[in-house]
Nucleic acid binder design. Structure first.
Length: 370
DNA sequence: TCCTATT
């Protein structure tokens, strides 16, 4: 696992133009005692052992994450943060080491590591609290000449900046697009910055800037999530694969097996006919879809959430074991319109839900070949 | 006119 990631990082060190600042949010103390720090009330102080890891590649799994950081030292706990509904990685995670020295070592050796197109950031996690959430600002209308440093200087009067970034044009290699992000330590600092800077002209600027809270990715609609899915899926099919190691071949294999033809309903039909299987067709209320590899805990709501964004869903059903009442691993969804059903199948077949890869198809009735 | 940083 770890070797693969390290290798990938070296092979795939794609240079991306980012103006990201690596802000340290670590504890200010320099001494690193051995072993967990236990306060008098018995609570563990993890400020010197708990790390947050940002900018992880989208397709990195919990296991790979643990493997990479476990190569440094004994891990007390670690978690790749994923979307509650879709199970997709949110691109960051936490690692809590047993020994503060290992946390320090992880920052020194893994911060800035290039993995695929990402440069990961490893830093001490701030203590979790509600006050640090939703502190990310979206800034637009910036003068093209304004640098990241200039922008930080402008915003720093309102609080402690955790990250800042100015988006740059991809083709002209590094020309500012006049939009960026500022993440403050505290949400109230971000609020003050909006009050103070939204609609204001920076010194010497011709136009006022817009400052607002950034869209929160964890609150994306089902539709937006699925749009993102198409895009990441499409990128995977067209991207170069020759650098991929075993683990990623598996990832691509799953996509190839379930997904290569998945944007063409015609192909779905022809493939099922070739297999000697006929679609049941629109029976009564609509098109019945078979969903396989649901978890034992799956319920109807997850099916509504997955299929609803594609169009009219008239019925969902999770098949459960009669005695345990646990899902038997599959269910059915009925959709009114063929094209919406086909799009849902094309998009959701091969889709990772939590730790599982779904198989989604029109419900079939086996028949002898003609 | 939206990069994915709080479990």
């Amino acid at each position: 696992g770890t070797q693969e990631w390290l290798k990938l990082g070296l092979l795939n060190s794609v240079i991306i133009s980012t103006m990201e600042t690596q802000v340290s949010n670590g504890p200010s103390g320099t001494s690193m005692p051995n072993g967990p720090v236990i306060s008098t009330n018995g609570a563990t102080d993890d400020s010197k052992t708990n790390l947050i890891v940002n900018y992880l590649p989208q397709n990195m799994t919990q296991e790979e994450f643990k493997s990479l950081f476990g190569s440094i030292g004994e891990i007390e706990s670690c978690k790749l943060v994923r979307d509650k509904i879709t199970g997709q990685s949110l691109g960051y995670g936490f690692v809590n080491y047993v020994d503060p020295n290992d946390a320090d070592k992880a920052i020194n050796t893994l911060n800035g590591l290039k993995l695929q197109t990402k440069t990961i950031k490893v830093s001490y996690a701030r203590p979790s609290s509600a006050s640090i959430r939703d502190a990310n600002l979206y800034v637009s209308g910036l003068p093209k000449t304004m640098s990241q440093k200039d922008m930080e200087q402008l915003f720093s009067q309102y609080g402690r900046i955790i990250t800042s970034r100015i988006l740059v044009d991809q083709v002209t290699a590094g020309i500012s697009r006049g939009v960026g992000f500022i993440r403050f330590d505290k949400r109230n600092e971000a609020e003050e910055a909006i009050k103070g800077l939204n609609g204001q002209k920076p010194l010497g600027a011709a136009e006022p800037i817009t400052v607002k809270f950034a869209n929160n990715p964890s609150q994306k609609t089902g539709q937006a999530l699925l749009t993102q899915l198409y895009q990441t899926a499409a990128r995977r099919y067209t991207g170069p694969l020759h650098h991929q190691t075993q683990r990623f071949r598996l990832d691509n294999l799953l996509n190839a097996t379930y997904g290569v033809k998945r944007f063409s309903p015609i192909t779905i039909d022809s493939m099922t006919s070739l297999a000697g299987v006929n679609l049941t067709g629109p029976t009564g209320a609509g098109w019945c879809i078979f969903v396989y590899n649901l978890s034992p805990e799956a319920d109807e709501s997850v099916l509504w959430q997955l299929f609803g964004p594609f169009g009219a869903v008239t019925n969902v059903k999770v098949i459960r074991d009669f005695t345990t009442n646990k899902c038997k691993g599959f269910g059915f969804v009925t959709m009114t319109n063929y094209d919406e059903a086909a799009m849902a199948i094309a998009s959701l077949n091969g889709y990772r839900l939590g730790d599982r890869v779904l198989q989604v198809s029109f419900k079939t009735s086996k028949q002898h070949k003609a």
